[in-house]
Design a protein around this nucleic acid. Structure first.
Length: 239
DNA sequence: CGTATTTGACCCGCGC
DNA sequence: GCGCGGGTCAAATACG
């Protein structure tokens, strides 16, 4: 009867494997559903943001946006990888911060009016603060010094961002739009968005991050970002 | 040699 | 008017 028990054992093993397979299949389905829901939400958010940007492009053109970038405290270069090419045209030591402030102009297109100021955060030396002014008249990461061939690009404008290929190089970045008081067309800023740079400087980053985590809007945006990453990952694994 | 960066000089707005 | 501070210019320098 040894052959019979061995046969039964094999059958049991197969059953167990089948169950395991079924369990994995269900888990996979659940995950796929989750990814689909998150992708859908992400797309909705993207569409919403694009519509808003188009509606407020005139006011946005005059607003500065600040980006916090995590950088090595020992690294003095103040380089912020944001997908654009910048030409340094000045450096100043300001009164309120011992670290020098660097002034850059966008060099990807000669007519591009965008400028940025980069300065190491006084309290958190592992962060640098980049302040962007204006809207790019060309796409990011294009061929250098090539003016945009499409005039429609001028109307839409390009806000500073961190392109996917540079995300690995930039451990952390956080974009803030410095909204003025006369912006009826824009949603009122959430509690965690400070009015100006000074208010960021005078609070600790940890405190700021903690307040971010409590904000439901930020949680939604974070979920969307994660969904985007998952979608990208799923695409790359399929290839 | 062409291009990018550095850095002191200069300009301009603001407060006193 | 003067001084101060932030922003920009431009000659000198560095670099590939």
């Amino acid at each position: 009867m040894a052959a019979s028990t061995s046969h039964k054992g094999k059958i049991k093993e197969v059953e167990e494997l089948k169950q395991e397979l079924e369990r994995c299949r269900k888990e996979n389905e659940a995950l796929q559903l989750m990814v689909e829901v998150m992708t859908s939400r992400y797309n909705n958010l993207q569409t919403y943001i694009q519509e808003r940007e188009q509606r407020t492009q005139v006011t946005v053109a005059n607003k500065a946006s600040q980006v916090f970038v995590k950088a090595d405290a020992k690294d003095k270069s103040l380089v912020v990888k944001d997908g654009y090419q910048w030409r340094k045209y000045g450096q100043k030591v300001t009164k309120d911060n011992p670290s020098p402030r660097a002034y850059y102009r966008c060099s990807m297109a000669p007519e591009c009016p965008v400028k940025k100021k980069v300065q190491r955060c006084m309290k958190e030396k592992s962060f640098v603060v980049a302040t962007y002014e204006g809207i790019h008249s060309h796409p990011p990461n294009g061929s250098p010094r090539q003016p945009s061939s499409s005039p429609n690009r001028l109307a839409t404008g390009f806000m500073p961002d961190v392109p996917s290929q540079d995300k690995d190089k930039t451990p952390f970045s956080l974009e803030l739009n410095l909204s003025g008081s006369n912006q009826e067309t824009r949603r009122p800023p959430p509690q965690h968005v400070p009015e100006n740079y000074d208010s960021i400087e005078h609070r600790s980053i940890e405190e700021y991050v903690a307040s971010l985590a409590k904000d439901p809007n930020f949680t939604v945006a974070l979920a969307a970002a994660i969904a985007g990453s998952i979608t990208d990952l799923a695409k790359s694994t399929r290839q």
